[in-house]
C-alpha cells in the first residue's frame, strides 16, 4: 500500500476503498482480543479501567445519593427515621421578640417606662420579686394604683397578656415565660428564669378571672 502524501490541502486522498473498510472491520469484530492466548496489554488495561470506573461510580452513587430520598437536598445527609428532633429555643431570643412586639409600647426599649404613667421594669421590685406575683400581673393584667420603687403610678392599666378570657394578646405559656425571663435578665436585672410550667401552674390555679389590683397581689 502506498502512503498517500497529503500535500494538497484542497483534497484529502482516500487510502482504502469502502468495501475493504467494511470487510476488514467486520473481521476485527469477529475476533477475540486474547485469541491464541496472546495477552495484549490494551484490552487488559481497558478491562481494569472500565471495572475501576464502575466501582468508583457505584461507590459515589451509594455515598452521595441520600438513599434516593426525594426530600434530601444535601448529598451528605441521610433520611431521618422516627420522630423529628425537637428544636431547643433560647428563651432570651423568644422573650426579646415578644417584648418588642407587646411590652415595648409602654415600658420602652430602655425598660424605664414613662415617668408618672408607666412604671419602670429595670430594678423594679415587682419584676425581681415573687415569681407568681410577676406571672399574675402579666397573664391577667393589673388595674388601679401601684407603687414601684417608692413612686406611685395611677395613670394606666396593664392589659392581660396571657391566654385568658378578655386578653387581647393570648400569648402562650411558653412565650409568657420567655418574656418574663427576658425582662429579668435585662437592664441590670439578674433574677432566675421563669419556666413554662410555672406559668401553666398559675394559670390553672387562678382559672379565668379579671385583672388583679396591687392590693390583691400584696396580700
Amino acid at each position: 500500500m502506498s502512503t498517500p502524501s497529503n500535500q494538497d490541502p484542497r483534497l484529502d486522498q482516500a487510502a482504502a476503498s469502502d468495501e475493504s473498510l467494511l470487510a476488514s472491520h467486520e473481521k476485527l469484530l469477529g475476533t477475540q482480543p486474547d485469541e491464541k492466548a496472546r495477552y495484549k496489554l490494551v484490552p487488559l488495561t481497558l478491562l481494569f479501567f472500565f471495572s475501576g470506573l464502575i466501582f468508583f461510580a457505584g461507590t459515589y452513587l451509594n455515598r452521595y445519593s441520600g438513599l434516593f430520598d426525594p426530600h434530601i437536598y444535601n448529598e451528605n445527609s441521610l433520611p431521618t427515621t422516627g420522630a423529628a428532633v425537637a428544636v431547643k429555643i433560647d428563651p432570651l431570643v423568644l422573650g426579646k421578640k415578644q417584648y418588642e412586639a407587646v411590652c415595648i409600647t409602654c415600658h420602652q426599649a430602655t425598660g424605664l417606662g414613662q415617668p408618672g404613667v408607666f412604671p419602670p421594669l429595670a430594678g423594679s421590685e415587682w419584676v425581681n420579686g415573687s415569681d407568681d406575683r410577676l406571672i399574675r400581673v402579666v397573664v391577667y393584667g393589673l388595674q388601679g394604683p401601684i407603687k414601684v420603687m417608692g413612686v406611685d403610678y395611677n395613670g394606666a392599666a396593664m392589659p392581660a397578656i396571657g391566654k385568658v378570657a378578655g386578653s387581647g394578646f393570648n400569648l402562650s405559656d411558653e412565650k409568657i415565660a420567655a418574656v418574663l425571663t427576658y425582662i429579668r435578665q435585662q437592664w441590670g436585672n439578674s433574677t432566675a428564669a421563669i419556666t413554662t410550667e410555672q406559668v401553666a401552674a398559675v394559670r390553672s390555679k387562678d382559672g379565668d378571672r379579671k385583672a388583679y389590683t396591687a392590693a390583691e397581689l400584696l396580700k
Binding site: 502512503t3 497529503n6 484529502d12 482516500a14 487510502a15 472491520h25 475476533t31
Partner: peptide, 15 residues
C-alpha cells in the same frame, strides 16, 4: 474519515 484516509483498520476496534 480516519480509517479511510489512513488506510489502516482502527486499532482496538473490538471495543
Amino acid at each position: 474519515v480516519v480509517p479511510k484516509a489512513t488506510g489502516r483498520a482502527l486499532p482496538s476496534y473490538e471495543f
